[in-house]
Amino acid sequence: MRRRNTIFAGTTLLATCMSLALVASPVMAKEVVKIAFIGPLTGGVSNVGLGGRNSADLAVRLRNQDPKSKYTYELVAQDDECKPNVGVQVATKVAADKNIVAGVTHYCSAVAMATVGVYNRFGMPAVVWGAVLPEVTYGNDFKEVHRVNGTMINQNEVAYKFMAGLGYKKWAIIHDTTDYGKGHNKYFSEFLKKGGGTVLGTFGVTADQQDFTTELTKIRELNPDVIYFGGLTPLGVRIRTQMAKLGIKAQFQGTSGIKSDAYIQGVGKELAEGSLSFIEGAPWEKLPGGLFFTSKYAQQKYGESAEAYGPFAFAAANLIMDAVEKVGPDRKKVRDVLNKTRDVDTIVGKVTFDDHRQNIVSLITKYVVENGAWVVWEDSSYGKGKRKLAGL
Protein backbone atom coordinates (compact mmCIF):
# COMPACT_ATOMS: atom_id res chain seq x y z
CA MET A 1 0.00 0.00 0.00
CA ARG A 2 2.82 2.28 0.93
CA ARG A 3 4.59 1.47 -2.39
CA ARG A 4 1.44 2.28 -4.40
CA ASN A 5 1.04 5.63 -2.59
CA THR A 6 4.68 6.44 -3.19
CA ILE A 7 4.31 5.78 -6.91
CA PHE A 8 1.14 7.85 -7.03
CA ALA A 9 2.77 10.71 -5.17
CA GLY A 10 5.78 10.61 -7.45
CA THR A 11 3.60 10.62 -10.55
CA THR A 12 1.58 13.55 -9.22
CA LEU A 13 4.76 15.49 -8.42
CA LEU A 14 6.16 14.82 -11.91
CA ALA A 15 2.93 15.96 -13.56
CA THR A 16 2.85 19.09 -11.44
CA CYS A 17 6.47 19.94 -12.33
CA MET A 18 5.80 19.40 -16.04
CA SER A 19 2.72 21.62 -15.82
CA LEU A 20 4.68 24.37 -14.08
CA ALA A 21 7.46 24.05 -16.64
CA LEU A 22 5.00 24.50 -19.47
CA VAL A 23 3.50 27.58 -17.83
CA ALA A 24 6.90 29.12 -17.12
CA SER A 25 8.41 28.23 -20.51
CA PRO A 26 8.97 31.41 -22.55
CA VAL A 27 7.68 31.85 -26.08
CA MET A 28 10.26 30.59 -28.56
CA ALA A 29 12.59 33.51 -29.36
CA LYS A 30 12.96 34.57 -32.99
CA GLU A 31 16.30 34.13 -34.70
CA VAL A 32 18.39 37.33 -34.61
CA VAL A 33 19.50 38.63 -38.01
CA LYS A 34 22.18 41.31 -38.20
CA ILE A 35 22.36 43.97 -40.88
CA ALA A 36 25.03 46.65 -41.09
CA PHE A 37 24.86 50.39 -41.51
CA ILE A 38 27.97 52.18 -42.74
CA GLY A 39 28.25 55.94 -43.08
CA PRO A 40 30.12 59.02 -41.81
CA LEU A 41 29.24 59.15 -38.10
CA THR A 42 32.07 61.59 -37.36
CA GLY A 43 33.65 64.40 -39.36
CA GLY A 44 32.34 67.20 -41.52
CA VAL A 45 29.31 65.39 -42.93
CA SER A 46 28.48 63.40 -39.79
CA ASN A 47 25.07 65.07 -39.57
CA VAL A 48 24.04 63.24 -42.75
CA GLY A 49 25.59 59.98 -41.57
CA LEU A 50 23.87 60.13 -38.20
CA GLY A 51 20.56 60.90 -39.90
CA GLY A 52 21.08 57.88 -42.13
CA ARG A 53 21.96 55.64 -39.19
CA ASN A 54 18.93 56.80 -37.23
CA SER A 55 16.71 56.16 -40.24
CA ALA A 56 18.02 52.62 -40.71
CA ASP A 57 17.63 52.10 -36.96
CA LEU A 58 14.02 53.27 -37.20
CA ALA A 59 13.33 50.71 -39.94
CA VAL A 60 14.75 47.96 -37.71
CA ARG A 61 12.76 49.09 -34.67
CA LEU A 62 9.51 49.17 -36.59
CA ARG A 63 10.16 45.74 -38.10
CA ASN A 64 10.90 44.28 -34.67
CA GLN A 65 7.53 45.58 -33.45
CA ASP A 66 5.74 43.69 -36.22
CA PRO A 67 4.38 40.39 -34.83
CA LYS A 68 4.33 38.97 -38.37
CA SER A 69 8.08 39.36 -38.75
CA LYS A 70 9.87 35.99 -38.83
CA TYR A 71 13.10 37.37 -37.39
CA THR A 72 14.43 39.86 -34.87
CA TYR A 73 16.76 42.34 -36.54
CA GLU A 74 19.85 43.99 -35.11
CA LEU A 75 21.60 46.98 -36.67
CA VAL A 76 25.40 47.03 -36.54
CA ALA A 77 26.55 50.63 -37.19
CA GLN A 78 30.05 51.48 -38.41
CA ASP A 79 31.75 54.84 -39.05
CA ASP A 80 33.51 55.22 -42.42
CA GLU A 81 34.42 58.87 -41.62
CA CYS A 82 33.82 59.72 -45.32
CA LYS A 83 37.38 58.44 -45.93
CA PRO A 84 38.07 55.71 -48.52
CA ASN A 85 40.79 53.96 -46.49
CA VAL A 86 38.62 53.84 -43.38
CA GLY A 87 35.66 52.75 -45.48
CA VAL A 88 37.60 49.77 -46.83
CA GLN A 89 38.58 48.77 -43.28
CA VAL A 90 35.06 48.84 -41.88
CA ALA A 91 33.55 47.29 -45.02
CA THR A 92 36.02 44.42 -44.73
CA LYS A 93 35.25 44.02 -41.03
CA VAL A 94 31.52 43.88 -41.72
CA ALA A 95 31.69 41.70 -44.82
CA ALA A 96 33.98 39.18 -43.10
CA ASP A 97 31.41 38.73 -40.33
CA LYS A 98 29.17 35.95 -41.63
CA ASN A 99 26.57 36.83 -38.99
CA ILE A 100 25.85 40.05 -40.90
CA VAL A 101 23.60 39.24 -43.85
CA ALA A 102 23.71 42.58 -45.74
CA GLY A 103 24.51 46.26 -45.37
CA VAL A 104 23.03 49.74 -45.83
CA THR A 105 26.19 51.38 -47.08
CA HIS A 106 27.84 54.76 -47.68
CA TYR A 107 26.98 58.38 -48.28
CA CYS A 108 30.32 59.54 -49.68
CA SER A 109 30.98 58.53 -53.27
CA ALA A 110 34.74 58.11 -52.87
CA VAL A 111 34.14 55.63 -50.04
CA ALA A 112 31.46 53.75 -51.96
CA MET A 113 33.79 53.41 -54.94
CA ALA A 114 36.60 52.09 -52.75
CA THR A 115 34.44 49.41 -51.13
CA VAL A 116 32.42 47.84 -53.96
CA GLY A 117 35.11 45.22 -54.54
CA VAL A 118 35.01 44.24 -50.87
CA TYR A 119 31.31 43.40 -50.99
CA ASN A 120 31.78 41.48 -54.22
CA ARG A 121 34.71 39.49 -52.84
CA PHE A 122 32.91 38.48 -49.65
CA GLY A 123 29.56 37.96 -51.38
CA MET A 124 27.74 40.38 -49.07
CA PRO A 125 24.75 42.30 -50.49
CA ALA A 126 25.04 46.07 -50.03
CA VAL A 127 22.43 48.74 -50.73
CA VAL A 128 23.99 52.18 -51.13
CA TRP A 129 21.85 54.88 -49.51
CA GLY A 130 23.52 58.16 -50.50
CA ALA A 131 26.57 58.08 -52.77
CA VAL A 132 25.68 59.48 -56.21
CA LEU A 133 28.72 58.84 -58.41
CA PRO A 134 27.39 56.77 -61.35
CA GLU A 135 30.43 54.46 -61.35
CA VAL A 136 29.42 53.03 -57.96
CA THR A 137 26.92 50.84 -59.80
CA TYR A 138 27.84 51.30 -63.45
CA GLY A 139 31.63 51.08 -63.08
CA ASN A 140 31.51 47.32 -62.48
CA ASP A 141 29.01 44.50 -62.74
CA PHE A 142 29.00 43.43 -59.10
CA LYS A 143 25.75 41.66 -58.32
CA GLU A 144 26.20 42.42 -54.61
CA VAL A 145 26.11 46.22 -55.06
CA HIS A 146 22.76 48.01 -55.28
CA ARG A 147 21.78 51.66 -54.96
CA VAL A 148 18.39 52.93 -53.87
CA ASN A 149 19.07 56.61 -54.61
CA GLY A 150 19.77 58.01 -58.06
CA THR A 151 22.99 59.34 -59.54
CA MET A 152 24.54 62.69 -60.25
CA ILE A 153 23.69 62.22 -63.93
CA ASN A 154 19.99 62.56 -63.08
CA GLN A 155 20.67 65.52 -60.80
CA ASN A 156 22.74 67.53 -63.24
CA GLU A 157 20.52 67.05 -66.26
CA VAL A 158 17.53 68.40 -64.34
CA ALA A 159 19.63 71.10 -62.69
CA TYR A 160 20.87 72.56 -65.95
CA LYS A 161 17.50 72.47 -67.69
CA PHE A 162 15.86 74.08 -64.67
CA MET A 163 18.42 76.88 -64.41
CA ALA A 164 18.44 77.55 -68.14
CA GLY A 165 14.64 77.66 -68.05
CA LEU A 166 14.85 80.43 -65.47
CA GLY A 167 17.02 82.43 -67.88
CA TYR A 168 20.54 81.89 -66.56
CA LYS A 169 23.27 81.71 -69.22
CA LYS A 170 26.74 82.06 -67.67
CA TRP A 171 28.31 79.86 -64.98
CA ALA A 172 31.49 79.67 -62.95
CA ILE A 173 32.09 76.18 -61.55
CA ILE A 174 33.80 75.32 -58.27
CA HIS A 175 34.13 71.65 -57.39
CA ASP A 176 36.11 69.61 -54.94
CA THR A 177 38.80 67.39 -56.40
CA THR A 178 37.43 64.11 -55.05
CA ASP A 179 35.67 61.67 -57.40
CA TYR A 180 32.42 63.18 -56.15
CA GLY A 181 33.25 66.76 -57.08
CA LYS A 182 34.95 65.88 -60.36
CA GLY A 183 31.94 63.78 -61.33
CA HIS A 184 29.51 66.62 -60.71
CA ASN A 185 31.68 68.98 -62.74
CA LYS A 186 31.85 66.48 -65.61
CA TYR A 187 28.13 65.84 -65.90
CA PHE A 188 26.90 69.39 -65.28
CA SER A 189 29.42 70.77 -67.78
CA GLU A 190 28.31 68.25 -70.40
CA PHE A 191 24.64 69.14 -70.05
CA LEU A 192 25.43 72.85 -69.93
CA LYS A 193 27.46 72.78 -73.14
CA LYS A 194 24.82 70.67 -74.93
CA GLY A 195 22.19 73.19 -73.90
CA GLY A 196 24.12 76.21 -75.09
CA GLY A 197 25.14 77.60 -71.72
CA THR A 198 28.55 79.15 -71.10
CA VAL A 199 31.20 78.08 -68.59
CA LEU A 200 33.31 81.14 -67.84
CA GLY A 201 35.74 79.29 -65.62
CA THR A 202 36.20 76.02 -63.72
CA PHE A 203 38.04 75.80 -60.40
CA GLY A 204 39.00 72.59 -58.61
CA VAL A 205 39.64 72.94 -54.88
CA THR A 206 40.59 70.43 -52.20
CA ALA A 207 37.91 69.29 -49.78
CA ASP A 208 39.85 70.68 -46.81
CA GLN A 209 40.74 74.05 -48.39
CA GLN A 210 39.94 76.99 -46.14
CA ASP A 211 40.70 80.14 -48.13
CA PHE A 212 39.14 80.75 -51.55
CA THR A 213 40.22 84.37 -52.06
CA THR A 214 42.21 83.56 -55.22
CA GLU A 215 39.44 81.54 -56.90
CA LEU A 216 36.61 83.85 -55.88
CA THR A 217 38.49 87.00 -56.92
CA LYS A 218 38.90 85.55 -60.41
CA ILE A 219 35.23 84.54 -60.43
CA ARG A 220 34.19 88.04 -59.42
CA GLU A 221 36.09 89.40 -62.44
CA LEU A 222 34.35 86.88 -64.72
CA ASN A 223 30.95 88.13 -63.48
CA PRO A 224 28.91 84.90 -63.89
CA ASP A 225 25.17 84.66 -63.44
CA VAL A 226 25.58 81.55 -61.30
CA ILE A 227 28.25 79.88 -59.21
CA TYR A 228 27.79 76.12 -59.46
CA PHE A 229 29.24 74.21 -56.52
CA GLY A 230 30.00 70.50 -56.73
CA GLY A 231 30.90 69.33 -53.24
CA LEU A 232 29.69 68.62 -49.73
CA THR A 233 28.29 70.87 -47.02
CA PRO A 234 31.45 71.87 -45.07
CA LEU A 235 33.18 73.14 -48.21
CA GLY A 236 29.98 74.76 -49.47
CA VAL A 237 29.61 76.68 -46.22
CA ARG A 238 33.10 78.14 -46.55
CA ILE A 239 32.65 79.10 -50.19
CA ARG A 240 29.22 80.69 -49.73
CA THR A 241 30.44 82.67 -46.72
CA GLN A 242 33.50 83.98 -48.56
CA MET A 243 31.40 84.87 -51.61
CA ALA A 244 29.52 87.31 -49.41
CA LYS A 245 32.71 88.80 -47.98
CA LEU A 246 33.99 89.50 -51.50
CA GLY A 247 30.67 91.00 -52.56
CA ILE A 248 29.83 88.36 -55.16
CA LYS A 249 26.11 88.55 -55.97
CA ALA A 250 25.85 85.54 -58.28
CA GLN A 251 23.20 82.90 -57.63
CA PHE A 252 24.56 79.98 -55.57
CA GLN A 253 23.63 76.60 -57.06
CA GLY A 254 24.58 73.47 -55.15
CA THR A 255 24.10 69.76 -55.65
CA SER A 256 22.55 67.20 -53.32
CA GLY A 257 25.76 67.52 -51.30
CA ILE A 258 24.53 70.70 -49.59
CA LYS A 259 20.96 69.54 -48.98
CA SER A 260 21.50 69.57 -45.24
CA ASP A 261 20.34 71.50 -42.21
CA ALA A 262 24.03 71.95 -41.43
CA TYR A 263 24.47 74.08 -44.55
CA ILE A 264 21.84 76.56 -43.40
CA GLN A 265 23.23 76.59 -39.86
CA GLY A 266 26.76 77.04 -41.15
CA VAL A 267 26.20 80.03 -43.41
CA GLY A 268 23.33 81.53 -41.45
CA LYS A 269 19.74 82.12 -42.45
CA GLU A 270 20.40 85.31 -44.40
CA LEU A 271 23.23 84.02 -46.59
CA ALA A 272 21.57 80.63 -47.12
CA GLU A 273 18.43 82.28 -48.50
CA GLY A 274 17.85 81.35 -52.15
CA SER A 275 20.50 78.61 -52.30
CA LEU A 276 19.52 75.72 -54.56
CA SER A 277 19.92 71.94 -54.29
CA PHE A 278 18.72 69.02 -56.40
CA ILE A 279 18.09 65.54 -55.04
CA GLU A 280 16.91 62.24 -56.50
CA GLY A 281 13.41 60.92 -56.11
CA ALA A 282 9.98 62.33 -55.45
CA PRO A 283 9.60 64.83 -52.61
CA TRP A 284 9.19 62.18 -49.93
CA GLU A 285 7.65 64.72 -47.58
CA LYS A 286 4.54 64.58 -49.77
CA LEU A 287 4.26 60.81 -50.07
CA PRO A 288 2.00 58.90 -47.63
CA GLY A 289 5.01 56.84 -46.60
CA GLY A 290 7.00 60.00 -46.05
CA LEU A 291 4.48 61.31 -43.55
CA PHE A 292 4.56 57.96 -41.77
CA PHE A 293 8.36 58.12 -41.67
CA THR A 294 8.54 61.65 -40.26
CA SER A 295 6.00 60.94 -37.53
CA LYS A 296 7.70 57.69 -36.47
CA TYR A 297 11.12 59.33 -36.60
CA ALA A 298 9.92 62.14 -34.34
CA GLN A 299 8.51 59.63 -31.83
CA GLN A 300 11.95 58.09 -31.34
CA LYS A 301 13.39 61.48 -30.28
CA TYR A 302 16.70 60.97 -32.04
CA GLY A 303 19.29 63.63 -31.31
CA GLU A 304 19.73 64.45 -35.01
CA SER A 305 17.40 65.11 -37.92
CA ALA A 306 16.98 62.51 -40.67
CA GLU A 307 18.58 64.87 -43.20
CA ALA A 308 18.13 64.57 -46.96
CA TYR A 309 19.26 60.98 -47.36
CA GLY A 310 17.74 59.45 -44.22
CA PRO A 311 14.65 58.27 -46.12
CA PHE A 312 16.90 56.41 -48.58
CA ALA A 313 18.63 54.61 -45.68
CA PHE A 314 15.20 53.73 -44.28
CA ALA A 315 14.11 52.37 -47.66
CA ALA A 316 17.35 50.42 -48.11
CA ALA A 317 17.02 48.75 -44.71
CA ASN A 318 13.45 47.74 -45.46
CA LEU A 319 14.38 46.26 -48.84
CA ILE A 320 17.00 44.11 -47.11
CA MET A 321 14.62 42.97 -44.36
CA ASP A 322 11.88 42.23 -46.90
CA ALA A 323 14.34 39.99 -48.73
CA VAL A 324 15.33 38.20 -45.51
CA GLU A 325 11.68 37.62 -44.67
CA LYS A 326 11.24 35.91 -48.06
CA VAL A 327 14.31 33.68 -48.19
CA GLY A 328 15.95 33.77 -44.76
CA PRO A 329 19.34 35.15 -43.68
CA ASP A 330 21.30 33.73 -46.59
CA ARG A 331 23.54 36.26 -48.35
CA LYS A 332 23.30 34.77 -51.82
CA LYS A 333 19.53 34.34 -51.67
CA VAL A 334 19.05 37.86 -50.27
CA ARG A 335 21.26 39.22 -53.06
CA ASP A 336 19.19 37.44 -55.69
CA VAL A 337 15.92 38.79 -54.26
CA LEU A 338 17.33 42.34 -54.21
CA ASN A 339 18.49 41.98 -57.80
CA LYS A 340 14.91 41.29 -58.87
CA THR A 341 13.47 44.38 -57.17
CA ARG A 342 10.78 45.80 -59.44
CA ASP A 343 8.25 48.56 -58.82
CA VAL A 344 8.43 48.30 -55.01
CA ASP A 345 6.68 51.02 -53.01
CA THR A 346 8.95 52.83 -50.55
CA ILE A 347 8.87 56.19 -48.79
CA VAL A 348 11.04 57.63 -51.58
CA GLY A 349 8.72 56.37 -54.30
CA LYS A 350 8.85 53.29 -56.52
CA VAL A 351 12.13 51.36 -56.55
CA THR A 352 13.21 49.29 -59.54
CA PHE A 353 16.76 48.06 -59.99
CA ASP A 354 18.11 47.92 -63.55
CA ASP A 355 20.67 45.44 -64.87
CA HIS A 356 23.39 47.10 -62.76
CA ARG A 357 21.25 47.17 -59.59
CA GLN A 358 20.75 50.92 -59.94
CA ASN A 359 17.38 52.30 -58.94
CA ILE A 360 15.66 53.87 -61.92
CA VAL A 361 14.72 57.31 -60.64
CA SER A 362 12.12 59.09 -62.70
CA LEU A 363 12.12 62.37 -60.81
CA ILE A 364 14.55 64.86 -59.31
CA THR A 365 13.23 67.22 -56.64
CA LYS A 366 14.34 70.83 -56.67
CA TYR A 367 14.87 72.60 -53.32
CA VAL A 368 15.48 76.22 -52.37
CA VAL A 369 16.30 77.72 -48.98
CA GLU A 370 13.47 79.96 -47.83
CA ASN A 371 13.28 81.54 -44.40
CA GLY A 372 15.88 79.21 -42.93
CA ALA A 373 14.56 75.90 -44.30
CA TRP A 374 14.85 73.78 -47.43
CA VAL A 375 11.55 74.01 -49.33
CA VAL A 376 10.40 72.11 -52.43
CA TRP A 377 10.72 74.65 -55.25
CA GLU A 378 7.10 74.39 -56.39
CA ASP A 379 5.88 75.09 -52.85
CA SER A 380 8.19 78.05 -52.27
CA SER A 381 7.60 81.75 -52.77
CA TYR A 382 10.29 81.57 -55.46
CA GLY A 383 8.47 78.84 -57.35
CA LYS A 384 5.23 80.82 -57.11
CA GLY A 385 6.87 83.96 -58.46
CA LYS A 386 6.62 85.96 -55.23
CA ARG A 387 10.38 86.07 -54.71
CA LYS A 388 13.28 86.21 -57.17
CA LEU A 389 16.60 84.42 -57.13
CA ALA A 390 19.80 86.43 -57.55
CA GLY A 391 20.21 88.00 -60.97
CA LEU A 392 16.61 87.52 -62.14
Rank of each mutant, 00 (worst) to 15 (best):
S256E: 08
K194P: 01
L392H: 15
I364E: 04
W129N: 00
K194H: 12
T177M: 06
V48E: 07
V116L: 05
F162G: 01
M243S: 02
K186F: 14
V128S: 03
F142M: 04
I100S: 02
T42C: 09
A91I: 05
N99M: 09
G49H: 07
S46T: 07
V23L: 12
E370V: 04
G289C: 12
L75M: 14
G39W: 01
L291S: 10
N223F: 09
R63S: 06
Q89P: 03
G289F: 03
D211L: 10
E144R: 07
Y160Q: 07
I360V: 10
D322K: 14
A9M: 08
P224K: 00
R240G: 00
K249C: 15
G43W: 04
K286D: 12
G49E: 01
T137S: 04
Y302I: 06
N47V: 10
S55I: 14
M113R: 06
P125K: 05
T178Y: 00
A317H: 05
I239H: 03
G139C: 09
F314S: 06
K384P: 12
N85A: 14
I320T: 06
E370H: 13
Y168N: 04
A390I: 00
K68V: 11
A159S: 09
M152A: 10
D211N: 12
S69Q: 07
H356V: 10
A308H: 06
F191Y: 11
Y187A: 03
A95R: 00
V369D: 04
Y168T: 01
S256K: 03
I347W: 02
L200S: 03
I320Q: 02
L291A: 15
S362F: 13
Q300N: 10
V237P: 01
I258E: 00
L62G: 08
R147C: 02
Q89S: 15
L235A: 13
H106F: 13
P311R: 04
A95N: 05
G254T: 01
A21I: 10
L216V: 05
A282N: 11
V136Y: 00
V199C: 08
V94D: 03
K218Q: 15
L389I: 07
D80K: 06
M113K: 09
T255A: 11
G44W: 06
S275G: 12
I219A: 02
D261G: 10
A250S: 14
R63W: 11
R61S: 09
I264P: 00
L75C: 12
K218A: 14
A21Y: 08
D176N: 12
E157P: 01
A126R: 04
V199P: 01
L338C: 06
